[in-house]
Structures are given as structure tokens and as C-alpha cells.
């Protein structure tokens, strides 16, 4: 065997790497952790999008004479509470108080993060809709289209284009935020890294490893979002 290769295999660095990833197939644990992270992120993201969109329309609702409705007040209170409290606390309250009897921690996490994300998404969607020029709606209505048809065919497609970059950003924030599920005993990617580091008495490798995995996933996501954004911008090109 090559002298340098031998030297590498005996090195401290390689031993740490082995302990962190290879011994007793530990790499599989990272993937399991990543699975938990992704599952919570994706479902909470979808739930957040759903809640956020509904809440955005609640916020934008107006009475006949242009005043805010009761629904819009409720929506504002929800947003204020969510944004005004730490998400770790929200998760713990959900896990230990509201859904204390639940046997399904993933569900609890999805609900908690979904409700949390919904508040931020609602602001993004609201801003995306408001950023569409008022003239677009007026033109639609002046042709005799209902407000519903105008919304669906004219306003929303343009609002989505406005909202996509911040929504992508929110999704990325959400994914990293799920790293706090360790607080309620769930084993996501971060928690796995932490567990392995306590077992091997070596923190560097597992933590850096987890960080690299987050980074790669998010980088891929960013590339995908950029692609989608460019496609949606097609109608703006000259």
C-alpha cells in the first residue's frame, strides 16, 4: 500500500471520520435523521402554505364599505401571537400541553411548524397580492369578470410570481428551524449528530457532517427555486 494512503488511514482525522460515519453503519442514522427533518419540513411547509394563503385572504377581506372584517382581526391576532413568541416554546406547548396525549410526535411537529410557518407565509402571500397593480384587477372587472375569476386568472398568477422568492426563503428557514425538534425528543438530523457526538466523545465530525448535509439539500433547493423563478419570469422578458 502507498505510504501516504497508509499514513492517512492511521491519521487521527480518518479515525474520527470512521467513528462518526462508518463504525456500526452510523451513516444510516444521519439519513434516518434527515428523513425525519425532511418529512416534518415538507408537510409543515405544505400546511403552512395552506394556512398562510387562507390567512392572507382573511387579512385582505373587506366589508362592503371598505372596512376590515372580523376575520381580518382574527388573522392579525394569530400572526402577532406566532411572530411574538419563540418557535421552540410553541413546539413545547404543542407537545407537552395542547397535544400531550398524542402518540404521534411527527404529527405534533408538523402541526406546530405548519401553524408557525403559516403566519409568515400569510404575510408573504398578502404582500404578493398587494404588489399586483390595482389596474390589473380593474381591467378584469371592467370586462365583466367576477372578482373570483379576476383573482384566480389575473391576480393570483402574478402574486405567485411575486411571492415565490420569499416563499422559497421561508421554506429554507423552516427546514433549519426544525432542528429544534430535539427539544421534544425527536431524532432529526441535528439531534442524530448530537447523539453520535456524545457516543464517540467527538463533536467535530458529526456536527460538521450534519451541517454539510443541510447545506447540500438547501443548495439544491435554491437551484431548483431559481430555475422555477426564471420560468415564471418568462412573461417579463423583452
Amino acid at each position: 500500500m502507498n505510504f501516504y494512503a497508509l499514513g492517512f488511514l492511521q491519521s487521527d482525522f480518518y479515525q474520527k471520520f470512521r467513528n462518526a460515519f462508518i463504525v456500526s453503519d452510523r451513516y444510516k442514522l444521519y439519513f434516518e435523521g434527515l428523513g425525519v427533518t425532511l418529512k416534518i419540513t415538507v408537510f409543515a411547509g405544505l400546511l403552512g402554505l395552506l394556512i398562510g394563503t387562507a390567512v392572507a385572504f382573511m387579512k385582505l377581506s373587506k366589508t362592503r364599505n371598505g372596512k376590515p372584517t372580523v376575520l381580518s382581526y382574527i388573522a392579525q391576532v394569530y400572526t402577532d401571537i406566532i411572530r411574538g413568541t419563540p418557535s421552540v416554546l410553541q413546539l413545547m406547548i404543542m407537545y407537552f400541553v395542547v397535544m400531550a396525549s398524542s402518540k404521534n410526535p411527527t404529527l405534533v411537529a408538523v402541526l406546530s411548524f405548519g401553524i408557525n410557518s403559516g403566519a409568515y407565509v400569510s404575510e408573504i402571500v398578502r404582500a404578493g397580492i398587494l404588489a399586483v397593480d390595482k389596474g390589473q384587477e380593474e381591467a378584469g372587472r371592467s370586462l365583466g369578470l367576477s372578482s373570483r375569476t379576476t383573482m384566480l386568472n389575473i391576480i393570483i398568477p402574478q402574486a405567485i410570481k411575486n411571492a415565490l422568492p420569499p416563499l422559497g426563503n421561508e421554506f429554507i428557514v423552516l427546514m433549519k428551524e426544525t432542528a429544534i425538534v430535539g427539544y421534544v425528543g425527536m431524532t432529526d438530523l441535528t439531534r442524530i449528530a448530537n447523539k453520535i457526538s456524545t457516543r464517540t466523545y467527538e463533536a467535530f465530525m458529526p456536527l460538521i457532517g450534519a451541517a454539510v448535509i443541510y447545506f447540500i439539500i438547501i443548495k439544491l433547493l435554491t437551484i431548483g427555486l431559481g430555475y422555477l423563478e426564471r420560468r415564471l419570469r418568462k412573461s417579463d422578458s423583452r
Partner: peptide
């Protein structure tokens, strides 16, 4: 909506639907 069908309006700022082709703007 029924009334507006019969009254065309042209705006200072054109207000073409930015997310649609010219054809779609007209036929929508």
C-alpha cells in the same frame, strides 16, 4: 358584472394582463 360586459373601458396605464399573451388577454 352583467352591465360591465357591455361597457368597454380603456385605461391610461393600458392595464394589459401581464401574465398572459396578447391573444389570451383578448380572449379571456
Amino acid at each position: 358584472n352583467e352591465v360591465r360586459r357591455h361597457m368597454g373601458m380603456v385605461f391610461q396605464q393600458f392595464n394589459l394582463f401581464n401574465n398572459m399573451t396578447v391573444m389570451k388577454n383578448i380572449t379571456l
